[in-house]
Design a protein around this nucleic acid. Structure first.
Lengths: 211, 211
DNA sequence: TTATATATGTTGCAATTGCAACAATTAAAT
DNA sequence: ATTTAATTGTTGCAATTGCAACATATATAA
């Protein structure tokens, strides 16, 4: 039920979009879009294509914050795109719909399908919030070691397994933890030497028996 | 419109709560509550009283994560209370309502007031999400200096002023930034000596002219 | 297939940081 | 008013970290 229009017919979807005065926008591949969004209250739905939310630091180095495919949702209330260091790039020709958050809140469409729409949005936001809370919990640890351990603990608990498969590269992990990659690597090696973890490619096994 | 029952009559409020099978619970002052919540899908509404979400670290030191008053909302989808390091404490005699998130999503109450309820909840969650995004943005900076600067920049932008009034103690700020207080202080002093900021009690003036 | 880009390992070193341990001040409680 | 608790301000030092600069390996594109 990740889809904003789950359980809503195509016809009702159109009705909702119309009543929200939603804009459909089309972009060619490799375009930086929404650069002039000052509003901090929009929600965007990917109708088709493939986009990335990227961050550009002072060196000009870019990191991918989020990848967005069809039916994915992003917005200023869900990501940090309103900050000037962040940007949204189309990696394929893409079509997106922009909805103003205020419209959603103030809309008077009292129909079952609008109700469903609100519940879907609530669900999507709630999932994002969960992820964000997790990340804050991890990021507030003071050392790289503790950040790694927190990450392992949370992931392990969530999957109910002492074996973790990294869903991305170690470079990405360092980024997620907000630490230098080589420093992270050093710590990862320490944990390995102390026997707390084993690493085989992207498979990490935890040998800690606390909770 | 921070209130979950904004624009909803007392009668309709009761109808919603009943249809969500909400539990009303009462607690005496200074009780650690909800300790046995395994579910990661509850939302709690403070009906009356005063509560705190606190974190207890390995030393047994406690820090206040959040303060909750009448009509405030918290829950596992909004805070990290499902983690065993966190807890909820009543600081006054309190009455709270617990609603299961799934009930909200799966409820079939298709009435205008339930619609309003969903919109209110969406609004509350959206605000929390904004705050969380801000914090992540700040926490992902690698040095204390950059964390401070990010915090100042965001706060200044939000208030549209180069003058910031700390809404809490410096100890709390260090906690928010996830850094050691004395180390933060050292950096604050550096910024002061470099003329980038001025500090008078909780009033901080920024002398940086970039954006 | 070869060239190019990206990711993985590794290390020295200087800068930053946490930690512990204080004194001084301010706030809260009795 | 006086005790008690909490916050602010400061510092030395050891541990951690970011940074730069590599070599190697792996993936992607031409």
């Amino acid at each position: 039920m990740k889809n904003l229009f789950y359980n809503i017919s195509a016809l009702n979807k159109q009705k909702i979009l119309k009543s929200l005065e939603a804009n459909t926008l089309q972009f060619k591949k490799n375009n930086m879009i929404l650069t002039n969004i000052k509003e901090d209250n929009i929600i965007c739905i990917i109708i088709e294509g493939y986009l990335q939310i990227i961050k550009t630091d002072y060196n000009g180095d870019r990191t991918i914050i989020e990848e967005l495919y069809e039916d994915d949702v992003f917005g200023s209330r869900m990501s940090s795109i309103s900050n000037n260091e962040y940007g949204v790039i189309t990696k394929e020709d893409s079509k997106i719909i922009i909805i103003y958050f205020n419209e959603i809140i103030n809309n008077n469409l009292n129909t079952p399908y609008y109700n469903q729409f609100l519940k879907n949005l609530l669900h999507i936001m709630s999932d994002k919030m969960n992820k964000n809370n997790e990340r804050v919990e991890i990021l507030t640890n003071k050392t790289i070691r503790n950040k790694l351990l927190a990450y392992f603990k949370i992931t392990s608990k969530k999957n109910n397994s002492r074996i973790i498969y990294l869903p991305y590269t170690f470079t990405d992990l360092a980024d997620y933890l907000g630490v230098d990659r080589s420093a992270m690597y050093r710590e990862l090696k320490n944990l390995k030497e102390e026997g707390l973890i084993e690493i085989k490619n992207k498979k990490i096994t935890l040998n800690m028996y606390d909770n």
